[in-house]
Design a protein around this nucleic acid. Structure first.
Lengths: 117, 117
DNA sequence: AATGAGTGCAACCACATCGTTGCACATCCC
DNA sequence: GGGATGTGCAACGATGTGGTTGCACTCATT
């Protein structure tokens, strides 16, 4: 079963982990630019072997960010709108979450400031 | 020199990498909940050694998400509002970026749909 | 049917990462 | 001063990760 961002805590890590690698981010960029591509094609655009690309696509797939579908003898990979969409939403909520916490931290800092002066 | 999210591409990776580890995310949670804490204290709250905590805090510091300041014989670590703030902003812009691309992908998909029918 | 392009699987290597332990050094407090 | 507490450094081990290569297999094309 593929990871569905927005679900459990486990998925958070898989998405962040997938996004942490620069080659995988480039892969997402490339896929966004051309809708769909095969591992072999992508390997021609990046300075790594096809097998390395395949592994990266596997990680991205496991994180629910990408999907591959077989067409004849080749496998076309493309972005997974649902997964990416969920990820962006989750990121926004995480950002909001942190905003709340930072606000709390700032309040404490200001209170300490007042106490010391 | 510490990483400043919102700056170059390199920092993106360091922040995502820092956030990818569950123990580090818990560390951020704990720091958000109590404003400041030492590595020794934090080690008491998590199932890992103090040294492991120290390393994690080092990674978080390198990503600009946390800061440690010496107070007598102990070192108090706390969240770094500037770094986290920049990170949340960057995440939002990344999300927006993806939204644009996904919209483009969807247009292409719909066009293909029209062509094939 | 035979060749070529594309994929899948497995072994392997180098290196990073997460975790440990042991010990030396600094600092507070009696 | 001397003991307790906290930090810093270093070595080490296990495991994960990014990358490679080699080879077998599948499918299209002629």
């Amino acid at each position: 079963m593929r990871a569905e961002p927005g679900g459990g805590v486990e998925e958070v890590g898989s998405v962040l982990g997938a996004l942490a690698d620069p080659t995988r981010r480039r892969l997402l960029d490339l896929l966004a630019a051309q809708d769909a591509a095969t591992a072999t094609t992508l390997a021609g655009l990046l300075p790594v072997s096809r097998q390395a690309i395949v592994k990266h696509l596997g990680v991205l797939d496991a994180a629910g960010l990408v999907v591959g579908s077989r067409v004849g003898r080749e496998v076309r990979y493309s972005l997974r709108p649902a997964g990416l969409d969920a990820t962006t939403r989750w990121m926004s909520s995480l950002a909001a979450d942190w905003d709340r916490r930072l606000a709390a931290v700032k309040r404490v800092a200001e209170a300490a400031e007042r106490d010391s002066t």
